[in-house]
Design a protein around this nucleic acid. Structure first.
Lengths: 195, 195
DNA sequence: CCTACCGATCGGTAGG
DNA sequence: CCTACCGATCGGTAGG
């Protein structure tokens, strides 16, 4: 496999990501994808093994990026509320680098077949649990309220983060680092003015 | 169309909702659905006109419930932060009444064809804008921070609410009214302890 | 609610 | 990267 092939494969994957996001994985056909690239459907298979291989690489590449971001945050010698803030900002920045892949990661991963689906869900639950640990640390240290359900808190956090690619327009909205800051502020401090 | 027919149609729609949620609208086949009901695929069409009719009724029925809930909240003679709280609680309670339909509403509406898709999106943007007005009212009255991006605030709110059906288990988690309260508290007041 | 079927489209392969 | 094609499956209809 030479450099030219890799690059063409990347083009296929990027075009597929846009199509998967637009129509959904199942409704997006390999003929649609081929047409986007100006080739015949059968020709796609000199670059990729299967439709699912594309979905697999999109989902697992994003998962690896999220993991890397959180690895760095966990090293910080900072209180839980600051770690959570940085975790949120990092997550947003990973997504902002590829909003299309992020949307596919979020909405289409369920169409992975076994055993990839299981592997994917294990990665995700692990990532979520690491955020949950930060929240628990903050409750223990008195940084966060002890009245809130921790599962609810972490899932609410995740929902907010992961739907960003559905509505965020990098052209007309605020930039991605400000977005991360504001999202962190809203989730940690709330909408209400300080008393 | 007599009562027996209506009731059978309801059974078809409920079984379809569960299937749409599990596999996604496109991947869920009418043969799957028929098998769940113990009949032949062709027999489904004595109860429903098309696969899309089922999706249409699921999405628009949910939209009507959300609208009704918000109508009541807007009447309240209360400050914006309380209206927002009640709006959140109402939204959660509508979803809790039918978690399966709520999940389909959220994830599968994009497979509606035109002009239904357009109508659906108009209803949704209207609903979102009504929440946005409540937030703006709160900023004007000094109830909410004026530093937060209002689009970000309202979309974050929505993401949190709408993903609830994906993770909430009414059996093992807190009950739905407590869920609404806690979600409202987290979004309005944040995770951090009051200063 | 069934049998029998339709045309369309799917992901993918063989062989060049 | 192409032509030619495969078996499987899709939503839906005709006619009972």
């Amino acid at each position: 496999m030479d450099v030219a092939n890799l690059s063409r494969k990347e083009q296929v994957i990027r075009a597929a990501a846009a199509l998967f996001r637009e129509k959904g994985y199942v409704a997006a056909s390999m003929r649609d994808l081929a047409q986007k690239l100006g080739i015949e459907a059968a020709s796609l298979y000199s670059h990729i093994k299967s439709k699912e291989e594309i979905l697999h690489s999109l989902c697992f590449d994003m998962a690896a990026e999220f993991r890397k971001s959180l690895d760095a945050v966990e090293q910080l010698p900072a209180p839980a509320s600051e770690k959570l803030r940085q975790g949120i900002i990092g997550h947003i920045e990973v997504m902002a680098k590829d909003l299309i892949a992020s949307a596919v990661f979020m909405n289409e991963h369920r169409h992975l077949s076994q055993p990839y689906l299981r592997d994917f869900l294990l990665l995700r639950i692990n990532y979520i649990n690491r955020f949950k640990s930060i929240i628990e640390e903050g409750v223990r240290s008195g940084d966060f309220k002890d009245t809130i359900d921790k599962k609810l808190a972490v899932m609410t956090l995740f929902s907010s983060l992961n739907w960003m690619p559905q509505w965020y327009d990098p052209g007309s909205d605020i930039n991605s680092s400000e977005l991360g800051e504001q999202l962190a502020d809203m989730l940690v401090n709330g909408l209400k003015k300080g008393r």
